[in-house]
Design a protein around this nucleic acid. Structure first.
Lengths: 252, 252
DNA sequence: CGTTAACTTGAATTTTGTCAATGCCTGTGG
DNA sequence: CCACAGGCATTGACAAAATTCAAGTTAACG
């Protein structure tokens, strides 16, 4: 599993001492002595069902991980950026496909050796654990998106996600580079390319975003995007919430 | 995060020695000296945004974890069964709500102490790690369901999931007890109660399942359910799969 | 045994998907 | 460096699936 990613991506520390060093050991440094491998855009790193022999660290570019239903429908479950790990799990086989979206550079590490390195380092362990938890958190957000948001809300949420990844620190970038195609976006957002296209056109028409080339979008009305993304509530709902049951009783 | 669950649920070992014991130490045994607490159906264990002070182990009953959008829409991201853990994460606050679906018995453990216990035990660590990975795997399956399956496929997949949980070992039970309401199912499957109801009615009408009370369903045509659940492909697709691009080139 | 929440069913509406045609980038090769 | 082809994206008209709104019906619980 693991294809951890998301918010707090630590900067890749350049390899100082050998693996034994215990000081500023970061997850990325486990890979630092491995050679860089390149994958062309569109090429697979591995397929679902392959023996899970390796863990990869993304150094440059973007990956997609996805599953295919028996009739060919594809669901992309995540996009991976530099600093993310691919293929971490305790299973014998990979549970999903991994492909390069753009030209990609990765480092490769044998799964068993990786497990050992993690297990032996009381410094690395919590880092990996935290990554897993972050990944789980964003998987849940994605489930919320897929189960309850409409097309426009999905697109806005997606743009915000990309905007977050664009900039270091925590403030969003207003200029978004979209490395993937409309088909990738559709298969990630549970829509069709046509709906993705129409929705983006509509956002442009209302002056909420502008476009300069298919893969470059600028946010013009951030507040509107934020609202349309339908962020999960902090405290009190705007409209009266649905009622769920009145049986709620305190624990004994 | 963590609300690990799913397939390989280990049997709860009765507490033998104190926490230091290194023999058949299972994750559950960490909690075994804590008192049992009860929650009535519908009552909350905690809310999103609460200080994440505790980790819970489900001993009996079923929980739902969910998020609420600002306008009141609810998305249930998981149901938790005995043996599952709730509230494991590295965050300061809970990221979701947890409520009892049925009357529930749990044990409670302070988050910090739990982290320590895990960190100190080279036996527990991989167990927790494996749970997290399993949870991630089923989160991905749920994303596939929500992004690409139609109502009927979602219901059949859901029934199969329940059937798996019903029986020990790995063979499905043909008699399914559905502890949650149609509304819970709808909010978990990204549908409305009406669609859930109609779909179940349709399955009954075709003799694929039968019903004896709203919360008890029997599978009559397992093969049909399996097919309708649209299980992810093993090898070759039935119909010609969509083409994705022809650029695919092997890595350098 | 009655009340009321939970569920089912039907009809109308909305959203998104499908099919089809056209337009526009982008990257390749001249 | 430019032209051109093919892939990718947009747009439109129509269809299908699911949602919404509105009654009814059933069954769970006190």
């Amino acid at each position: 599993m693991l294809s951890a990613s998301n918010l707090p991506r630590q900067t890749m520390s350049t390899s100082h001492a050998a693996a034994a060093a215990e000081s500023t050991l970061s997850l990325g440094s486990v890979f630092s002595d491995k050679p860089i491998e390149q994958f062309a855009a569109g090429s697979p790193l591995f397929w679902e069902g392959d023996k899970a022999k390796h863990v990869f660290e993304v150094v440059e570019g973007v990956l997609r991980i996805f599953k295919i239903l028996s009739d060919g429908r594809r669901a992309i479950t995540g996009f991976l950026y530099p600093g993310d790990l691919v293929g971490v799990s305790m299973r014998d086989l990979y549970l999903y496909n991994a492909e390069a979206v753009t030209p990609v550079k990765v480092r490769r590490f044998a799964s068993v050796a990786f497990q050992e390195a993690i297990n032996l380092s009381p410094e690395l362990r919590p880092q990996l654990f935290a990554k897993l938890c972050d990944e789980m958190a964003s998987a849940q957000d994605q489930m919320v998106l897929l189960s309850r948001k409409n097309a426009e809300e999905r697109i806005c949420s997606f743009l915000l996600m990309l905007a977050k990844r664009m900039s270091r620190d925590n403030n969003l970038s207003m200029n978004i580079e979209i490395p993937m195609t409309r088909l990738d976006m559709a298969d990630y957002l549970g829509l069709t390319i046509e709906t993705v296209s129409r929705t983006i056109t509509s956002l442009i028409g209302r002056g909420i975003i502008t476009q300069s080339g298919r893969h470059d979008i600028s946010i013009k009305k951030l507040d509107t995007i934020l609202r349309l993304a339908g962020h999960v509530e902090a405290d009190e709902p705007k409209s009266a919430p649905r009622e769920y049951s009145r049986q709620a009783v305190w624990p004994t």
